[in-house]
Design a protein around this nucleic acid. Structure first.
Lengths: 249, 249
DNA sequence: ACAAAAGTGTTTTGGGTACACCCATGT
DNA sequence: ACATGGGTGTACCCAAAACACTTTTGT
């Protein structure tokens, strides 16, 4: 087994465990995913390939810390919501394309790596200029290109899980500022589910969520009737949530 | 790093990855979980401790195969539903009690082990006599004792996830025979959610599930009005499932 | 005849969905 | 005055929940 790590680094990571992050970005009614480029030689020519950001788990690190570390490296952001959603362990997962494996081999301590998939939600507007690393870009989730390894599968599962979770947990608020309007909230659902909702029905529905607190602040400087700002009260949410019998279709 | 494995075995497993299985058993309206005993010395006295069945991931094995292998070893059953639900990666997870770590250390190739939690559903009545291994027993889920390592946490999360999934996926059928009565089905929900449902409302609800097929067979040999048998049509389920907007409470 | 579980219907209440117009502000 | 997005109400249908009696069988 080859390795480009120094001896001291060898003891810093677990050889067979990594974390890959599907970082969803939201901005201007569009949902995107962060990918980063790598130079992957094929037939002695250098190609640009895209992959999800990922990293090994360090020896004294919980996987949530690994995910947060990756997020910080890529976007400069801290204190961001990250959630593990699935382990990908196919023994051949790094071998889908020979050139990908040739590229990754010198970076590995063990040829078999099991990866824990995380997804994360960031409001792109909250990323300060140039904090995003050079080699990264945001891809529209409806136009994701070929990624390295099994990363297309990891992405697909992440999007599926994100949608599932959005319907059952208060995840929207990770993409909203502290104070937000109901239209902002509606547009996030519409972007992520690629659909649209009736404004009146939507508002009747969310108005029944008692943990949505209407403030007495309204927008200023907009050239239309100013909208009211709301906040999310997490304590109220936690103490009122229920599970109902609903084995659905 | 110490090891009781032979050299040849050393190369068969991934040192830092294991699978732990929360095997739920259902029988006679009661939900139980399978635990197995280990002799753990403490202060030079031998104690019996209980843990969830688990094992290392082999070098060429997908984690689902690891889980199935564990299930086969413990219960003799094959072709059983297993589902990964969460990774437990706290660097101290094996150190909660010193005696537990002393016991496990000689069985490890690496002192840091990240484990993938699986849960599984078996109908206890389908386990033939004596196929359950000697050291295993079924504990009522409402009376789970102290387990080794972080296994109480793994169990708690598994039960939570099981309940969640039961409301959103056709999991009940893993606990039902090919042909079953609606009362059998209702009693499983009641056991797992520790509650009871109105028979008429329950039946109206499940009767709307078009993938529940009523056969023309009925019970025989029961000293009351015989119940009709139903079957689950998975194809019909898969082709009719939907996701609705339902960001609930 | 009795015990035991199967099977069935009605009413009330609340949520889902479809649909169109006036309001407050900036330019 | 106009353009822009904010904000509201009603009618219909269907689902959820509460509730009690008759039916079929074995003993």
């Amino acid at each position: 087994m080859t390795s480009s790590f120094t001896d001291s680094e060898d003891f810093l990571i677990l050889p067979s465990v990594s974390v890959d992050c599907v970082i969803f970005g939201y901005s201007e009614n569009t949902l995107t995913v962060l990918v980063r480029s790598e130079f992957v030689p094929i037939d002695n020519k250098i190609n640009i390939e895209w992959k999800l950001p990922g990293n090994h788990v360090r020896r004294n690190e919980d996987i949530y810390d690994t995910a947060s570390r990756i997020l910080k490296e890529q976007t400069g952001l801290e204190e961001i919501y990250v959630k593990q959603f699935q382990v990908f362990s196919n023994p051949d997962r790094l071998h889908k394309r020979p050139q990908d494996f040739e590229w990754v081999k010198p970076r590995l301590l063990d040829e078999r790596v099991i990866t824990v998939g995380f997804y994360s939600l960031v409001n792109i507007d909250s990323i300060k200029n140039n904090q995003l690393i050079e080699v990264a870009k945001w891809m529209n989730v409806y136009e994701v290109e070929d990624l390295m390894f099994d990363h297309n599968e990891i992405f697909d599962q992440a999007l599926k899980k994100l949608r599932y979770d959005l319907l059952h947990e208060p995840l929207v608020f990770e993409l909203l500022p502290e104070k937000f309007t109901l239209t902002q909230m509606q547009k996030i659902y519409e972007a992520i589910f690629n659909t649209s909702y009736d404004k009146r029905n939507y508002r009747r529905k969310v108005n029944k969520m008692i943990y949505l607190i209407s403030t007495d602040e309204i927008q200023t400087g907009v050239s239309h009737k100013p909208a009211r700002f709301y906040t999310f009260n997490r304590e109220s949410y936690e103490s009122n949530k229920t599970e109902r019998f609903d084995f659905r279709v």
